[in-house]
């Protein structure tokens, strides 16, 4: 017996932890990339704001997408609901209300990470402190993921942890492709051509994929190969195809899985059948847009199947339920 609300909190907890890790890595990689770019290059910190998908909120509060502003916004600005600190706070609230479910040391690890981030957040604004701060956060997220994997029963509850983690990964990977790859495709910035290689490499790096790419794809780092790797690889843990397969396994172990499976299959087909060469030649943005809609749809199906008590007629939800914020 698993309460819908517990499943929901567990799912979002996993998504939030994954989100923090992804954000930290994204900043770190951009930081390294910029060091290699010519001083007058147009590339800067703005793409990071675009990736998070809330550029409008950013420009409400800041004039310019410079290093300091973007980092502040991504790491600690309460105006940004998915800033790292806010995301950790949300993760913590979700865990607090389902503490009985998780191994005790997961709570402790998350608490440590939360207070570390809170106390050291200004380190990210300095070039010197940035690396240590962000790597510590990435490591701590891995620690939590590892503790969950090693000390929690891999039962139905754990399926929601896995689903949360994998869906958050598909989300991040698709955003990275959307923003970074689009900038990189021919048609833009003739002056940056010589730097394509390192930029494509940084796309891989921001998903921790470079080393595995080199092992499995025997082509030098270039656009189409990178894109098909990130979209269609079966084995790389942040490739969308891989993540969706993981969700597929999770759903097999859950009841009432028909509607979410249906949505899942639609997304899986979009990925599997994609002809990357054609997409790149045509309109990458519109493809990614459709894919993101399919992923949103999958999340919505999970929500309505598992988190809302779907079998109950709509008239009897109470107020609290309607107002519950999930994202």
């Amino acid at each position: 017996m698993l309460l819908a609300s517990v499943a929901e909190r567990v799912y979002w907890f996993a998504r939030y932890v994954e989100r923090v890790e992804n954000t930290a890595r994204m900043i770190l990689v951009n930081n390294n990339l910029l060091m290699d770019m010519p001083k007058n290059s147009t590339l800067g910190w703005a793409p990071l704001v675009s990736i998070t998908g809330i550029a409008d909120i950013f420009y409400e509060h800041y004039q310019e997408a410079n290093e300091r502003n973007v980092l502040k916004f991504l790491v600690m600005d309460p105006n940004n609901p998915s800033c790292m600190l806010c995301t950790l706070t949300n993760a913590r609230e979700n865990l607090r209300t389902s503490r009985a479910i998780f191994p005790r040391d997961v709570w402790e690890a998350l608490n440590d990470l939360y207070s570390y981030t809170k106390e050291n957040k200004s380190a990210v604004l300095t070039r010197r402190g940035r690396y240590a701060f962000l790597s510590h956060i990435i490591d701590s997220c891995h620690l939590i993921t590892g503790k969950l994997s090693a000390s929690m029963s891999h039962d139905q509850i754990y399926e929601f942890v896995r689903m949360g983690r994998n869906i958050e990964r598909t989300d991040m990977t698709s955003r990275v492709i959307d923003v970074r790859a689009d900038n990189l495709l021919p048609k833009h910035d003739e002056d940056l051509k010589p730097f394509d290689d390192i930029q494509w490499k940084s796309v891989l790096d921001s998903l921790a994929a470079h080393q595995m790419y080199r092992r499995y794809v025997h082509v030098r780092v270039q656009g189409v190969a990178v894109l098909s790797y990130l979209l269609q690889d079966w084995y790389f843990p942040r490739a969308i195809q891989h993540c969706l397969t993981q969700v597929e396994y999770c759903l097999r172990n859950l009841p009432l899985n028909e509607a979410p499976q249906y949505a899942l299959v639609r997304a899986q087909r979009m990925v599997r059948n994609a002809d990357v060469r054609k997409i790149v030649a045509g309109n990458l943005n519109s493809y990614i847009n459709d894919l993101q809609l399919a992923l949103i749809d999958l999340n919505a199906e999970l929500t309505s199947s598992y988190f809302e008590g779907r079998e109950v007629s709509a008239t009897i939800y109470n107020i609290a339920d309607k107002q519950r914020v999930t994202a």
Binding site: M1, L2, L3, A4, S5, A7, Q156, L254, P255, L256, S305, Y306, E308, G309, R310, E311, V312, S313, I316, Y317, N318
Partner: peptide, 16 residues
């Protein structure tokens, strides 16, 4: 939730 004067809890498998 209450339906037909019976109390149910919402679970991932529906109502119990």
């Amino acid at each position: 939730v209450v339906e037909d004067d019976i109390v149910y809890m919402k679970t991932i498998s529906g109502r119990a």
